[in-house]
Nucleic acid binder design. Sequence first.
DNA 1: TTAAGTGTAATAAACACAATTACAGTTTTG
DNA 2: CAAAACTGTAATTGTGTTTATTACACTTAA
Lengths: 137, 137
Amino acid sequence: MVNQQFNFAVHILTVLAVTRSVVDSQTLARSVNTNPVVVRRLLQALRAAGLIETQAGKNGGAKLARDPRRITLLQIYDAVEPRPVLAMNERKAARHCFVSCNIKTVMATVAEGAETAVRKHLRGITLHRLQQKIRRG
Amino acid sequence: MVNQQFNFAVHILTVLAVTRSVVDSQTLARSVNTNPVVVRRLLQALRAAGLIETQAGKNGGAKLARDPRRITLLQIYDAVEPRPVLAMNERKAARHCFVSCNIKTVMATVAEGAETAVRKHLRGITLHRLQQKIRRG
DNA sequence: TTAAGTGTAATAAACACAATTACAGTTTTG
DNA sequence: CAAAACTGTAATTGTGTTTATTACACTTAA
């Protein structure tokens, strides 16, 4: 099973951007094709990041907290805190081995560079831009 | 469980680059801190990519097939064929929903851009460079 | 010919993520 | 104020992915 929280989160926010109104987790879940509880957990993360507002109770749901032009995919990415794009090796080194003792630090730098590259890419794309693309079919 | 084939593969190749000799899967496995069979599976992938040569039988093992200056992290990455850095959503869209029907295509473009960014980063790092870094402690 | 390897299949174990159930709490509306 | 319709969240189960392990046929050097 692959982690799709980022996909789900972007999907949810796009729906909110398109509808420009309060949408409940049930409706969002149907659009994403997942469970309402999964959606609500993501909504918590997005709310914590200040991207949406939620409202409990009857006629409750979620809505965007700001203009889609001011929401980047990087903000969404950070909100759901995915795993690093290149996984780090957490296992302990073989003490007798030169390479084993130092590879982790070196690879951390490599992973960091990859992370930076992806973040830069995501920072350049706004939710508004996604909306436009979707409108064009 | 997190996919660490890329980490393992780079680790293995670094050992081979440092030792400049034939190393058996048992020894490599101890350095990586994993199982010899896991190592041998990776060695198959690296051999298929032309990065190493393997030899069966007594005193067998693996050795580099070319100069570490001519092995990039991208080649290693491609050899082990990891998952895309940003997962795609494979579930079917809700037909009644505008966003649901189009988000996949749009996100595919986003994921592609992220992939390109990471690949560009990895292409700029050679195995030789890793070796140097490790030597400096 | 034997010892020490690789190559590879099959299976089990560990783990991450999503789905589901359940229910307490909140808010609107009649 | 009571009922309906939500959110918030814990707990559990289901499913898929990856690594670990076992087993053994095959290869090669000595």
